[in-house]
């Protein structure tokens, strides 16, 4: 049995697999279920400083190759979030990453202030959800200066709590955005958020299937993109990275780590392989390490760059 534990921004994880933001994660007990199913940690759904309505259904559709979602980041607000995070803490001891989001700059400050009181192990800023484009404004995730500004503002509020920024792949140069948020005080980045947005049309009714018409693309189809972006960021910045995008198997997760990820986000895979996918991936990583004489999984991080 290999040592699968990793340290990310000073936080110890018993394995590198974490629940990605936006999947399950509505309640504390559902996140605890993810840990009981084998994950090393979890990320909450994006938390707003106020209640936020999502989109109408259909919100998620999937094929063997891809998943498309426009759930619309529904949230019950900080009071609910605090209660759910407390429930999670009572149930399990694995680290929790609180993902925060806002419509405007002030929102990010407000939710940062609220979330600090919930004692997350790590805070992740969502600057890049593509399916609420109108509200968030495409410029934030795509603009170097705005990405840096939101990071700086949140950093000034959250003190010493490790801070990471979830990056959009839908930008001209993800490395320069990553550099800007690192320079602005982030401790690491998550790469990548969903791709697109994309669209699927039902030809029999001549209508887009998602109620929001378009949505973020995830699932196996985006894995090569995610691996390349993680590779590019690691090559240029050597910063701590949560690699996420299309990971279904232990081999996928190890590929992501070799590209440069310390933690590996798993989301859409719960449809492809079931609720217990986290433990399956961890077991597969362990087997691969044993078969290949890897004693510590931490040694694989960025291996492809060596």
């Amino acid at each position: 049995m290999a040592d699968l534990s990793v340290e990310f921004c000073g936080v110890k994880f018993k394995n590198p697999i974490v629940l990605a933001s936006g999947i399950l994660g509505v309640t504390g007990d559902s996140m605890a279920q993810v840990v009981r199913n084998g994950a090393g940690g979890v990320t909450t759904k994006s938390l707003w400083p106020h209640e936020h309505l999502g989109h109408a259904n259909p919100t998620i559709i999937s094929t063997q190759n891809w998943m498309l979602n426009a759930v619309g980041i529904p949230d019950g607000g900080p009071e609910k979030a605090a209660e759910e995070i407390a429930r999670y803490r009572k149930a399990v001891s694995a680290p929790l990453i609180a993902n925060i989001v806002g419509g405007v700059m002030d929102d990010y400050e407000a939710i940062a202030r609220a979330v600090v009181l919930m004692n997350p192990d790590i805070i992740e800023i969502n600057i890049s959800c593509p399916n609420v484009e109108d509200e968030l404004g495409k410029p934030m995730a795509c603009s170097i200066s705005k990405s840096a500004e939101v990071t700086r503002r949140v950093r000034s509020i959250v003190g010493q709590i490790p801070l990471i920024v979830k990056l959009s792949p839908n930008v001209e140069n993800i490395v320069s955005i990553a550099k800007s948020v690192m320079d602005a005080g982030a401790d690491g980045v998550t790469a990548i958020n969903t791709v697109g947005p994309g669209m699927a049309i039902d030809i029999d009714s001549a209508q887009p299937i998602l109620a929001n018409k378009s949505g973020g693309l995830s699932g196996p189809a985006i894995k090569p993109l995610a691996v390349k972006y993680v590779y590019d960021i690691y090559k240029n910045l050597k910063c701590p990275i949560v690699g996420t995008g299309g990971v279904l198997t232990g081999r996928d997760a190890i590929e992501m780590m070799m590209a440069g990820a310390t933690l590996v986000g798993v989301g859409s895979a719960v449809w492809y392989r079931g609720q217990d996918v986290f433990g399956k991936i961890v077991a597969e990583m362990d087997e691969w390490c044993d078969a290949n004489g890897v004693k510590k999984i931490q040694d694989l991080i960025g291996k492809v760059h060596a």
Partner: peptide, 23 residues
Amino acid sequence: MKCGFGVCGNCCVDGSGVPTCVA
């Protein structure tokens, strides 16, 4: 329920934490 196949998490129950749509 929103998605119906265990991804969105809206139908998870307290206690066991499982999504009602798949469990």
